[in-house]
Write a protein that binds this DNA or RNA. Structure first.
Lengths: 102, 102
DNA sequence: TAAATAGGTAACTTTAAAGTTACTCATTCA
DNA sequence: TGAATGAGTAACTTTAAAGTTACCTATTTA
């Protein structure tokens, strides 16, 4: 399967909403689906994408599949963010250095 | 115009590559376009999207349009990231608290 | 001032993503 | 054990995004 792009994964508002739900509590798939207008199979697809890209884990308990947040996907995003965080921090420090000189 | 979703904006690999280029130096549009296989109008569209969503600023110098990174777009992403950073930090602290008890 | 350079935009095509319905399997419970 | 519940998946449709080409304007320079 083609490696999923984490940026592509969180581009979808529904998927971000799912992540937010799961940041409050772990939930079985039907409960998640109840929070959306769209059909359960649609939610199911989103969950598969989130699982394949490392944002959630799914554990089967009887006939229920519980979803939990998984740090892996977030780490990839954070690495990207950190680069630009550092860019802006460095820029600010540079400005401060100029101020000190002046 | 419909408000642009910053997550949607950075979902495109070309746009992220543009941001990376601009983290090294500010550049006029043609120079940016030279770094890509795609046509200049395609790059131009990406730049408009990046500008409209607050990731870059464009300043006209004669017939050249210089592109620079703009912090606004990044801040929106960072706010989102911080929520989940906090989620994982809190979770770790909770685990540590359990360890201390046990 | 004509040619070259820098860039915007409209019209169109292609493609992939997100949704749907219909079907299937597995588990639970009455 | 049959009905209900929880969930996966295949086949299809629709839509929006990303790219293209063609054409236009503005600025610079020879």
């Amino acid at each position: 399967m083609a490696q999923l792009d984490v940026f592509q994964v969180i581009a979808d508002p529904s998927r971000r909403q799912i992540l937010h739900l799961l940041s409050i509590d772990q939930l079985p798939i039907n409960i998640i689906a109840n929070n959306f207008e769209m059909s359960r199979p649609a939610v199911s697809k989103h969950l598969k994408i989130l699982a394949d890209s490392g944002f959630i884990s799914i554990s089967v308990k009887g006939r229920e599949h519980y979803c939990t947040l998984n740090e892996d996907g977030f780490v990839q995003l954070k690495n990207w963010m950190d680069y630009y965080d550092n860019f802006w921090k460095t820029k600010l420090q540079h400005l401060e250095a100029l101020m000190d000189q002046g």
